[in-house]
Write a protein that binds this DNA or RNA. Structure first.
Length: 328
DNA sequence: AAGCTCAACAACCGCCGGGTT
DNA sequence: AAACCCGGCGGTTGTTGAGCT
């Protein structure tokens, strides 16, 4: 792995970054003009780390000035979060971490922060990079669409799958519309746990990301239903989901981090357990369709995933160090 | 040795939601 | 209620080094 701290910085340049105010007009992100960009030097790292050690995290916008850094706050935050934080684990992604990433990705889609939140010591950026450079290719090589986790359409060229809409021109159309701050509100992290029906309808109509949000909303919906002790009449979502009805709107509930966490863990572990059994029984590829998807599909009406051959190959239920044991 | 290509990953960008004033 | 600030997210880009010709 390259060490950016030792990287030379020929391209380091002085510039300003911008952000938008509510009216859409660009305003300087950093008051100070002439901020540094590019790779961080060891000296900058030291300044930042020692400052945060002294004063703690937060107030990122003013932190650079207080710490004596010629960086914008965002850059400082990113550097700290992705590299300098003591809890950040460096080095190779272990097989069981990879396995967990795959399963979480199928559950959550490109929700890197959510995925990272369940893999101790790994950052969203690291997982995102690992996915884009390793796992998505691995899946494509196995004939699996990394976006949907379904078998590739034979007519679909691998280049079509490369990166999810990388062009900026496409961003508006192809970028996943966020479901009511999904990363923090809908499924995790905050206590609100609310899913907005309107928003769900919006993103369910997004062709490019249908599966992803079917998954998410189905989980969320099933989850809120579970919380509600709803009877067995959980409304199944088909592959051509039509959105959420007003009646469903009434199901919108609040969930706690702990309960969602347990729920997610149960899905993950159900799958792991099923995979182990499947390996023991040496069943065919069809049987490899893992239990997570089975459970999810049964409970929430989801489609099945297909990458179990990769996933189960890495998984050892008896491994005392397996990541699942850390997930809590 | 030089030039080229590609993989890896750190860093940047634009956008958004929540909180505060 | 509106404006603003802040932190966070996901997508994308830029830089570097390794491998190949």
């Amino acid at each position: 792995m390259r060490n950016p701290a030792t990287a030379t910085t020929p391209a380091t340049k002085l510039t300003t970054t911008t952000t938008r105010n509510n009216s859409g007009a660009k305003t300087p992100c950093c008051i100070k003009v002439g901020l540094k960009r590019g790779p961080w030097t060891p000296e900058e790292d030291e300044l930042l780390a020692s400052y945060i050690k002294r004063e703690g995290e937060g107030r990122w916008r003013t932190l650079p000035k207080r710490a004596g850094l010629l960086r914008c706050g965002k850059s400082c935050r990113l550097r700290w979060m992705n590299y300098l934080r003591p809890s950040v684990k460096r080095g190779q992604i272990a097989p069981d971490e990879e396995d967990l990433i795959l399963r979480l990705h199928r559950l959550l889609g490109n929700r890197w922060s959510l995925i990272a939140g369940r893999i101790p010591g790994r950052t969203d950026n690291e997982i995102k990079n690992y996915w884009n450079t390793h796992l998505s290719k691995k899946l494509i090589n196995q004939g699996i669409d990394p976006r949907t986790h379904k078998p590739l359409n034979p007519q679909q060229s691998p280049s079509d799958l490369k990166a999810p809409s990388s062009s900026k021109a496409n961003r508006g159309a192809a970028t996943i519309p966020k479901p009511n701050n999904p990363s923090s509100s809908s499924l995790e992290e905050t206590s609100s746990g609310q899913i907005t029906t309107h928003k769900e309808n919006e993103y369910f109509q997004s062709n490019n990301t249908l599966h992803q949000y079917q998954t998410e909303a189905a989980i969320a919906h099933g989850f809120t239903s579970l919380l509600n002790c709803e009877d067995s009449g959980i409304e199944m979502r088909s592959n051509q989901d039509q959105g959420i009805s007003n009646e469903e709107d009434e199901d919108i509930n609040y969930c706690t981090d702990d309960v969602f966490s347990s729920f997610l863990n149960s899905l993950i572990n159900e799958e792991a357990f099923a995979n182990q059994n499947q390996m023991q029984q040496q069943t065919n590829v069809t049987a490899h369709a893992d239990a997570l998807v089975s459970v999810t599909a049964t409970t929430f009406g989801l489609v099945q995933g297909w990458e179990s051959p990769i996933m189960s190959s890495n998984f050892n239920q008896n491994d005392p160090n397996r990541v699942n044991d850390h997930v809590n």
